[in-house]
Design a binder for these strands. Structure first.
Lengths: 366, 366
DNA sequence: GTGAAAGCGCTAACAT
DNA sequence: ATGTTAGCGCTTTCAC
């Protein structure tokens, strides 16, 4: 295909106003060159049945030598095909950003090509995810994006869908053992290391930190936790890790945990929360205890509470996982796969890792 | 326009395989509804000449009530218009990422709509920028993206182009007084504040920092410098700012500057370099002096040198400006403006601010 | 000022 | 196995 990227040759007379594109090769050209009909050319080009291998060969080779490229607009105009993608996700503020990203991929031209149907779950409701997954399959969608909160439960369903030709991507949280065509989300291990580096640097390399994990056994949290511990152990000998608590991704539990820590008289210089949920409660506790700002806190995501606590210094830094592009990339990957069976390069497509500080809160948030 | 976003209704029987899009309203429908011809409808819809205001009104209103939306594919198929955008930029590793971003906007369908011509400058060569700008105008391109290294010199040219209907966007560095339709790049003031926050936190809020500005009077550097100073003065009383040096964006000068600082016996705990250029030289000096890692360094961008120094701890953090999306957004803004005179929301479109640490270098780099 | 008709490049149904 | 033809929705030329 002719590239649309050009480096300006200095001698220059090129460029062009909005003008008819320069002569492009069509099926008709091929047909004329070979003295055959346009229908046959079309059949050859698409490998459709009812054509002798001999002419097919000739057509294909002259197509290539003439530099034929199909005109997508004409194709789309005549077929009028519209693809449906199902996205099975929660719908809280974090996920709203995912939706926005997904929707942006269908802007302009996209709207004619694609429709995205949202199947709403609530956070951590694996059974409902399975039920919706089945509904999507029954609705005969062309592709599915899902954030499997219980990989073990979803994996057989994902595998079944993929086997039957319906591509599935996992986003935000993975089902690594499944046949999903790709995972799109944060590299949790790197995130854990970044958290470790930030906290250690904010403590000038020495002190005691507590870890509050969302769920000790949910993949994302576990990875964020383990990588954090490894990084501290490896690179920051002066930092000690104390107890590891579990907040069950609850909005309130971090409050109790923090109170318990200080009630027990444990000297803590930093707290690492492997989620964004519950940061409000944690901040409230630290303020009540009178150590907000003194105890350095690193957490995840940019929910309203987080932004506020970043602003007043209670949270030192928060790590984002770019929900917008999680949505965007999921739809894009599915679309590309559905239209030309094109798989992403690797098993995972990592979204960037935004680091939120007080100074840049205006640029963050969801 | 009918949206392509759907929330799954739980009663569900919806969805759909790749199927003919459901009945969409065409010009023909409008014509039939009004008992007039399709040509007239088209004229009304496009405000073309030769039509009575009476019928025009009726057409427009029924078009709206029927929910008519033009079929872009049909439009494009028949007009075959291809737009040319000129990008006037340097071509070093940083700018290669900008190119990649720009090119990605013309992927797939885009290639049929758009061509991007690159006009190569070298860093800080204002005269050449003007010359290339003129060339682009003569080549009758449909839009121009440029990183004006001397805003005063370029502004009259930008204004002239815009007046004559050729939209211009500035990227990476702005010409704020010009009529460019939008600036796409980093919010330098926020970047300066982020640098201040990082450095202050890495120093636990006390110490002495030196500033090395690329150019004290080049807009970007000046903003990064001033915002840094203001933020330190306002929020971090324990941090003192010493001398301000100028490296002239040179690859080597930071070496001399660092040596001079320490030769003079000035006690410096942190160094803020408002650019990425010359970080290699600065790192070399600090290593020779024996203070690499002790003196905290914050700088910009993720060039090869920077990544290496982040890795070995000589640089504590570096701030990226997302060159990829500078390219992507520039082309997108120009395209939207050219095709439907749609201006971006504000005068500036700020790209995100990546913070590079040792732990996430693998995700950065250009 | 309005209608009729050709045709963009392609697919698909119908001939042969 | 191959040729012919009728559109997809739109723009544009040429009649009237």
């Amino acid at each position: 295909m002719e590239s649309s990227v050009h480096v300006h040759e200095h001698s220059s007379r090129g460029g062009g106003k909005p003008s008819r594109a320069k002569k492009t090769v069509t099926q008709k050209d091929i047909a004329r060159a070979l003295g055959i009909s346009r229908g046959t050319v079309d059949r050859a080009l698409h490998g459709r049945a009812g054509i002798s291998t001999a002419v097919k060969e000739r057509i294909l080779s002259t197509a290539k030598s003439l530099g034929y490229a199909p005109n997508k607009f004409a194709q789309l105009l005549v077929t009028g095909k519209k693809i449906t993608i199902a996205m099975i996700t929660p719908s809280d503020p974090f996920w709203v950003r995912v939706h926005e990203g997904a929707n942006s991929y269908l802007s302009e031209l996209g709207e004619w090509l694609l429709r995205v149907t949202w199947y709403e779950t609530t956070v951590h409701d694996p059974e409902r995810e399975v039920a919706l997954f089945q509904e999507a399959l029954e609705a005969r969608v062309d592709g599915i994006g899902i954030a499997p909160s219980d990989p073990d439960l979803l994996t057989p369903w994902i595998d079944r869908a993929v086997r039957s030709g319906i591509p599935v991507v996992t986003l935000n949280t993975d089902a690594p053992e499944s046949d999903r065509i790709v995972f799109i989300g944060q590299d949790s291990a790197v995130a854990g290391r970044v958290a470790a580096e930030l906290l250690a640097k904010f403590l000038l390399g020495r002190g005691r930190v507590a870890i509050i994990a969302g769920f000790k056994n949910v993949l994302v949290h576990k990875l964020r936790m383990d990588a954090f511990r490894d990084a501290i152990a490896k690179d920051y000998a002066g930092v000690a890790i104390g107890e590891i608590y579990e907040s069950h991704d609850s909005d309130s539990e971090p409050y109790e945990i923090a109170r318990a820590i200080f009630r027990a008289g444990i000297a803590v210089d930093g707290i690492y929360l492997t989620t964004g949920t519950g940061i409000g409660a944690l901040g409230r506790a630290l303020k009540e205890i009178g150590v907000a700002g003194t105890v350095k806190v690193v957490c995840f995501d940019f929910l309203a509470d987080t932004l506020e606590l970043l602003k007043d210094g209670t949270v030192s830094a928060s790590i984002g996982e770019d929900p917008y592009s999680q949505g965007y990339q999921s739809v894009k990957a599915l679309y590309n796969y559905i239209t030309d069976r094109r798989k992403p390069d690797g098993p995972a497509l990592y979204t960037r890792m935004d680091i939120g500080l007080r100074a840049n809160i205006d640029l963050l948030g969801y």
